[in-house]
């Protein structure tokens, strides 16, 4: 029994028929081929699968595709286009840039989720302290970096984004 859904992903509308139990992360990866969103635990604990659902960071391994019906999803592949001034011409979002500049990733597996959670953090709090960044990232696990360069990456992005606003 398939269900019809309409989801706008990275600015593009998709009409799909999906199994009711299909996870949003599998919909994004296996149906739409957007494999930048990773699966690290299937139980909402690691945060590798974080995407923005109607602008809020969610763990897409515990959202059903049918729950995203009528919603707007941003994945790592579509993030740069959303950055102020970037438009469709590409480039990097300041958070992506921060991760590159500050060596905020090693194996890269947790990175898309880390970046999207950081984007949400900076929307809520444009100038977070170290402690606030650490708290905001508590739902995203990284086994490689020890987090310090990630903190620096987020600070880099915060600085860059506040300059852009002024």
């Amino acid at each position: 029994m398939a269900v019809e859904i309409q989801v706008r992903v990275n600015g593009k509308t998709h009409d799909s028929r999906v199994e009711p139990r299909l996870l949003l992360v599998h919909y994004l990866r296996d149906v739409l081929g957007l494999t930048g969103t990773h699966i690290g635990c299937e139980t909402s604990l690691c945060g590798a699968c974080t995407v923005l659902l109607d602008g809020k960071a969610v763990k897409s391994c515990t959202v059903l595709a049918v729950q995203a019906d009528g919603s707007e999803v941003t994945t790592i592949e579509g993030l740069a286009a959303q950055a102020p001034g970037n438009g469709a011409k590409g480039g990097l979002h300041p958070v992506q840039e921060g991760f590159w500049e500050k060596h905020g990733l090693q194996c890269g597996y947790c990175t898309p989720g880390m970046i999207l959670t950081s984007v949400q953090l900076l929307e809520d709090n444009p100038d977070p302290s170290e402690a606030e960044i650490r708290r905001a990232l508590a739902g995203n696990l990284c086994r490689c970096t020890g987090y310090q360069h990630i903190i620096e990456a987020v600070r880099y992005a915060a600085k860059k984004m506040s300059k852009g606003k002024r």
Binding site: R29, L34, T35, G36, T37, H38, I39, T75, I76, E77, A80, L92, Q96, F99, W100, L105, G108, Y109, T111, P112, I115
Partner: peptide
């Protein structure tokens, strides 16, 4: 890797 363009096995 920061743009989701890397390919891991499941990709």
């Amino acid at each position: 890797l920061i743009q989701g363009l890397g390919h891991y096995v499941d990709d």
